[in-house]
Design a protein around this nucleic acid. Sequence first.
DNA 1: TGCTGCGCACATG
DNA 2: CATGTGCGCAGCA
Length: 593
Amino acid sequence: MTDIKNREYILEAIDQLRRRKARPDIHRICNFMTRRFSVDTKDTKADLQRCVENEVVYKVEYKGNISYRNAAKKSYGHIKKEPVVSIEPVVVVKPENPKLFANIVTTAVADLILSDSDYLDFGVPAAELMKKILFKHGSKFTKKMLTDLFQREVENGGLVRMDNGNFSLGRSTQHESEKSEGDDDYLNTSEEVQGSLKVRKKPGPKPGKRKNEIEKLRSLEPSSIGIRMGGRRKRAKKVFDPSDNNLPRVNRKRGRPLGSLNKSTIEKQTAALLSARSSDQSPGSRPTSRASSTGAKEPMGGVCSVCHMQGKKGGCDKMISCRECSNKAHVSCLNTEEGILRMYPDNTWQCPHCKTCVVCYETSDSGALTVCSICADAYHSHCHEPKILEKSKGAFKWVCSNCQMEPLLTDIKPKMEIKQEDIDKAEDKPVLNLSSNPDPLFLATNDQVSPTPPNSGRSSPFLRSPPVSPTPPTLSPQTNHNGGMHSSSSTEYKFNLSDSQSLKDFDTEDSYDPSIPDASNWSYDDVYNYFVQYFPEEAIVFKEQEIDGHSLLLMKRVDVLTSLNLKLGPALKIYRHVLKLQVRRDDHKLYWL
DNA sequence: TGCTGCGCACATG
DNA sequence: CATGTGCGCAGCA
């Protein structure tokens, strides 16, 4: 790959500007680069030029002015004389559809070869290929799935494993992948393939005229619980950050998000919103969704619907409002409860009256709801697949099938060893590592993430403590049983504390965990070696960014989430490790600060 | 004053 | 007609 120093930054700048609906012109890009990455204008311009030359970025004229486009984004085929990027549709991938897997993997290989001719000679490293596919289809694959996919493709002949372990295209797939049609099965996204799949087009902004109507419909449609809806999303994909507010745009004024506001401002807005909502909400209309309220609110008063006490019980006790109605409860009252009172992992809460089955969207009026002890989603017994048995509700903390799936996925052993060190250790689980106990019924009693790096024989100072974390089994603040949430961890305000502030609190709280290495004197390579154990694909950014131990210890969450140009999922996982190294403790509470 | 979000008109295929 | 783009404005620090 052609080495352009600030390539990723430039792409991020372009993407960010596009998200902001601002023209990604040279001025704005330079400005963004300076502000965000401290890259001076001269360097930015030079690198941008190189990006254009290398077709990493397209320079286009649009409406009479020059804009820049991220070439990796789809839909720019018409801008360039020749489309460089693949144009395959975004699809919901079913593992049982080998043709589609084949298409994706061969297209990715072809894309990489097109972007860097060296790959033609030396093949595409598994890690790079995986990264490419995850970049495009990250929500549909886990790394383990991809490992299988690669294996399958080698077996099928769609891919060829080279002596150096890299991949190249097999059969006659070369030069075909940029087309979405062709007579090769492996590249075919024609009707036959598409017809057997749910094909959805790339999400994009709706025309403004229709937007209000759509939003209106959304507000009436209970199934608007974002991630569960099928079909095209109405808004540009917003990456999830547990510390973010995950707030709706509906009802929200223009300007900065609540998360960036100060506390008093938020309170004012919240109060206004609450009063507005209580006044205009008709009795029959069920409030909408997670995405239709302000999320975790912090009302100043009110009566707790659990203990019926008014206002705060103690100095640091908080009240939270139901995200659908104006019911309130003490966070501590919710924390001690399982079942229908549970808060969601994103620190929002639905009161029992508003809690709906995530399948049929009916409340408990139409049948008793069983609540997942991990994600707090509720299901009617007959709505959940498989049907929820009475005994499974009673004897154990019940875990829904979605949450059960995650750890099970990780148990699938790769059939092939694609450069074992690169892939085998990939962390696939966004939330849990439960492999030590395969019984999903015990999921809730395991620790959040305790990756147990396989000892590959590499001499490493990072061998870790036993996989079972000393921290109590918790997934989110609501399961913290220390008599309530950690001072303010239940609210969005807590997330607005500066990282350093948060860390300071924790730093002084406990002694170090001796099993967590002291990274302060690590070199770039040490840092890389540590992270490559857990994040074989992403670890390279630590090298690229020349992050040594000292820098690592200074990193803030925002650095990990934004400056490393990682996908959010890995970034969050990486952040956990960063934090762990920083405080030399593995405390789940840290990740919710 | 600068950054940001976003409604809506316009461009494009 | 569907979708991408970005002007122009508003909210905020």
